[in-house]
């Protein structure tokens, strides 16, 4: 995003480029968090509008990315806490069909997304930032303002829980 943000001066074209470049990231964090496509779209739109109001204060492309991840993750946590969202499968909430190349097992992937969406909010944020955004423990800790040790231990517990539930789904005997 070299031209999307120029320090101190932002015009509409820059903002459009920022939106296009980061829309998949913001939308996907929200979608994997909420497991609800319309709600994720609404949340992502709000995040970008907040960015639009604050873009002048952001200093670099890296700052924009960091800001978007942090605001999106925190908003998702807030929304979940407010709504106490239950991951239910309703016709309107089933993910849109998509068949990217290399998908080994769509059923399993959908189930994993459901399992992630059923984790406690903080754990959910950790898992999404780790495996969707490929961030390391230090980066996640900085983003969510948590100690690195806490990130590490909570991520490990979240993975244990996911592993247990995923095995149960597959009908395995442990």
């Amino acid at each position: 995003m070299p031209e999307a943000v120029k320090a101190g001066t932002v015009d509409r074209i820059d903002f459009a480029e920022v939106v296009r470049e980061h829309q998949a990231m913001v939308f996907s964090i929200a979608y994997h968090f909420l497991h609800d496509r319309p709600a994720a779209e609404e949340l992502a739109q709000d995040v970008f509008l907040q960015l639009y109001r604050n873009l002048g204060g952001l200093e670099s492309p890296e700052h924009v990315t960091h800001w978007l991840r942090r605001v999106t993750a925190n908003r998702c946590i807030d929304v979940c806490r407010r709504r106490k969202l239950m991951p239910r499968i309703g016709l309107d909430q089933i993910p849109e069909p998509s068949s990217p190349a290399g998908v080994a097992d769509p059923l399993l992937e959908r189930r994993l997304r459901q399992l992630v969406a059923s984790l406690p909010e903080k754990w959910r944020a950790l898992v999404i930032l780790r495996y969707q955004e490929d961030l390391d423990n230090e980066e996640i800790a900085a983003l969510l303002e948590m100690p690195v040790g806490t990130v590490k231990s909570q991520l490990s517990r979240a993975l244990d829980l996911l592993r247990e539930k995923a095995s149960r789904f597959l009908g395995e005997v442990e």
Partner: peptide
């Protein structure tokens, strides 16, 4: 998890709606 949580594009027209709202 990396496979299941890969980034997805938002619904068509999303960027346009954001820009229109802005």
């Amino acid at each position: 998890l990396r496979g299941a949580l890969r980034r997805e594009e938002p619904p068509a027209g999303f960027a346009g709606r954001v820009l229109a709202a802005a």
